[in-house]
Design a protein around this nucleic acid. Structure first.
Lengths: 325, 325
DNA sequence: GTGAAAGCGCTAACAA
DNA sequence: TTGTTAGCGCTTTCAC
């Protein structure tokens, strides 16, 4: 294939200095209009593209940011990625996506690769920390998402406060007359697991309902587990309502419910977690705890592109919202 | 913040030549074991990371590949991105995702950015071509996905052949006794629109059924349109079965169907398009035309990482599959 | 086994 | 207005 077109090759082709070419292509004032036009045309003809590598080596910002997610099929992450990708296009940032599978080794690897290409920053859902691997981000501007984990530096976090929504979920069910409200959520593997369960319990307390350990089901955050836990609940046939604490788990649980039950005469009231698109209509609409994904993603993009020195080691907390359907 | 750590700064720190540092860090044979150990340790302490820019400038491969998608919320694209991201991690490639929104201007822009960073290749769902913008990819190795569109060079394409599955869908409905089978799909804005409709018509012909123009509904590929077209169909109340030709459209149509209809006594048999996760269980399971996303994505990653010169301007066609539920 | 020089593509700073 | 020089971080080539 043809050789790479550089400002020097253009300069040679035109019999001028490569600096004139550089200036012409960079809109420097000190170039004759005619020269500039000539250069630009020839550059276009020859198929010139700036070398990002050369610019990066001179210290220019790369306009590359990273996004570390456990996966991207989970609808929450997919929507986050989508929104953030859009925000990045708008800010003319390139988005490098790494999937970590919640593995801290993969995470460390991804961070290293991002540093190598001098990414300007990274938004990461920190993997459950493995003390074995210390993800040292030497100077890389990082923003933690959803979860907070101690990596070397203190970094800002974008978090969701779902406690009020969870309490509201319990309250609304209690108001409907439910007394046997179950909870299905993630276990303590993630810090969010216990805190959601705690919020659920607070909700019970506020409603002056008894805690029933047999109605609190937790497990790994996956649709399969959610399905299994919900099935257990349905078999036991004690609970009259369920609140979910986890996106995947909610999907699985909902599936178990709809498989067992007809929407018409459903015996169990259900409040999901997350904003899967079909919640809005399936079975007449599923009440759910809505996470403000778009806001989170927009904020993340803002934090990365904003250049303020060290102003914001703050946490940015967005409230989840109970959507009743 | 601290200055960037380079081989030179390490060398100065250690009082040796930067070449020795380079060799030590690159596992060159000609370095004293002790020196190597010393250098590596100091490098780790100082937080050294290789400059990808410098390596790129010397002509080394960047190990960066691009992925251009219309969006990433569409479950098909999300799954594709997920699989390809995983494949890239496995091949230690970095994945840069650009969302084009099917806009050829955004597409051209994204391609340019990828060239600037010397991406090794790009997998792209070509935007409906706007003769205004010519997305010239000067030497960038490209692979087209799903759709085929004439960009400067001839490039390989990864395509889905859904015609057999569409015909099979019609056949299976005909076998069930349906005579008034409707079609809801994308219109001619995409090349896939007409070809799917054609396959549907072939299916009718094979089954010796009459074409009924009023039962062929097409429109823009969106869930809203799918919902609207399905609603029209239900109102008209002529069709006893529906085949979809489009992921988004299928989702919308299914929604309209489930809103109107109870799964039990459904009067309309439905065959969707795509592999949204809830198809497997919603309403007792939705028959659908399954697209082999994982295969496509794996193939795409392979094509980009394989280094064979120009061997494969071939198209790689994968058959869609009718899944009966 | 180690070091010095050169050059990848680009632009700031100076020279003409 | 245009040209020359130097250097960003790295490795290949050639000395030592």
């Amino acid at each position: 294939m043809s050789e790479r077109v550089t400002i020097k090759s253009i300069a040679k082709d035109l019999g001028i200095s490569h600096m004139t070419v550089s200036r012409a292509l960079s809109d420097h004032p000190n170039v004759l209009k005619e020269t500039r036009a000539l250069v630009r045309q020839r550059a276009a003809e020859m198929g010139y593209v700036k070398s990002a590598a050369a610019k990066a080596m001179r210290g220019d910002a790369t306009r590359i940011v990273g996004l570390l997610l456990p996966n991207i099929v989970n609808e929450f992450y997919a929507r986050f990625a989508n929104t953030m990708a859009l925000a990045c296009e708008a800010k003319s940032l390139q988005l490098v996506i790494h999937l970590t599978g919640d593995d801290s080794h993969a995470e460390a690897q991804a961070l290293k690769r991002l540093q190598e290409i001098q990414a300007q920053g990274v938004v990461m859902v920190p993997a459950p920390c493995d003390p074995d691997v210390v993800p040292n981000l030497h100077g890389l501007k990082a923003v933690q998402l959803i979860r907070q984990s101690d990596i070397g530096q203190p970094v800002p976090a974008i978090l969701v406060d779902d406690a009020p929504a969870l309490r509201a979920a319990v309250a609304s069910l209690a108001n409907m007359g439910h007394r046997d409200i179950a909870y299905i959520g993630a276990d303590q593997a993630m810090s969010s697991g216990p805190s959601r369960l705690a919020a659920f319990r607070e909700g019970l307390e506020i409603a002056r309902l008894m805690r029933q350990p047999s109605l609190e089901k937790t497990g790994a955050p996956s649709a399969e587990i959610g399905h299994a836990l919900m099935s257990e609940l349905l078999t036991a046939n004690v609970a009259t309502a369920v609140v979910c604490g986890g996106v995947e788990i909610s999907n699985g649980a909902l599936r178990a419910l709809l498989e067992a039950d007809q929407p018409q005469d459903r015996g169990v009231d259900f409040i999901g977690y997350g904003d899967a698109s079909f919640y809005s209509w399936i079975g007449g609409g599923v009440s759910t705890i809505f996470l403000p994904v778009e806001q989170l993603a927009t904020k993340a993009a803002d934090l990365l592109s904003e250049d303020r020195p060290e102003a914001s080691i703050l946490n940015h907390v967005y409230p989840a919202e109970l959507i009743q359907r």
